[in-house]
């Protein structure tokens, strides 16, 4: 079991002299292996919530637990290590390293992870095969379509076998066909690897893939479906 538990999270930002509350007392529990969508209009706090769950940002107050491990008190180095070991990220702009091939982009995730000293080739090729782009392994990102790039990003996020994958609007830069393909791959990975996925989106079609949808507005949970 690796449940993610968020308790009374508040996040304030200072904009000049004004304090803006991006998240207001958010509490939720995300079960291991679930496929969760965070939905809401721009400025509702979707990205901030994902950043805090993903240990990229610290809450102003409130606690985050992975099972019973309280990570909200961790310092930057501990959070980096925690992300390294447990969390995968998929970005809206793919954020692939342009000078590395598809294979090397995925391998990068293992190269920075002390758990994976050996067998990079086997793990990377298995993952590329799972997302259906093994034949593109020697191509560079500029030689790929948007959908293919996002598959590389998914492989990169999953190759280290994280307990949680966070995807910030993973289909925003894709056409509907590619968006559908990417969501199906994510869902397949969620099923096959039992990895928890939390993704933010505006897209109704994409939301339909989720087990649960958390609707945010003005930093509060409006509705949990």
């Amino acid at each position: 079991m690796q449940d993610v538990r968020v308790e009374n999270i508040v996040k304030d930002y200072k904009v000049g002299d004004i304090t803006v509350r991006a998240l207001n007392s958010i509490s939720l529990v995300i079960k291991k292996g679930s496929f969760i969508s965070v939905a809401g209009p721009s400025g509702s706090g979707k990205t901030t919530l994902l950043n805090i769950i993903g240990c990229l940002d610290k809450p102003t107050s409130g606690e985050i637990f992975f099972d019973d491990e309280k990570i909200s008190g961790y310092d930057d180095n501990m959070l980096t290590y925690f992300r390294n070991q447990n969390i995968g990220f998929i970005f809206q702009d793919f954020n692939l390293i342009p000078v590395l091939t598809v294979y090397e982009n995925v391998e990068f995730s293992l190269a920075i992870n002390p758990k994976f000293r050996k067998n990079h080739k086997k793990l990377v090729e298995e993952m590329l095969d799972m997302v259906g782009i093994l034949e593109l392994r020697n191509r560079f990102p500029k030689e790929l379509s948007g959908g293919q790039k996002q598959r590389v990003a998914i492989a990169r996020a999953l190759v280290k076998k994280p307990i949680l994958v966070l995807a910030d609007e993973p289909t925003a830069n894709l056409d509907s066909e590619n968006a559908k393909n990417v969501m199906e791959i994510m869902k397949k990975m969620n099923r096959d690897l039992n990895t928890t996925f939390i993704f933010s989106t505006h897209d109704k079609l994409v939301m339909d893939y989720a087990d649960d949808i958390i609707h945010l507005r003005d930093g509060k949970i409006l509705q949990k479906v």
Binding site: G54, F89, N95, I112
Partner: peptide
């Protein structure tokens, strides 16, 4: 790119 690497947990 550096942000992505650090987000991925690059120490």
């Amino acid at each position: 790119e550096i942000g992505t690497m650090r987000a991925m947990g690059a120490p």
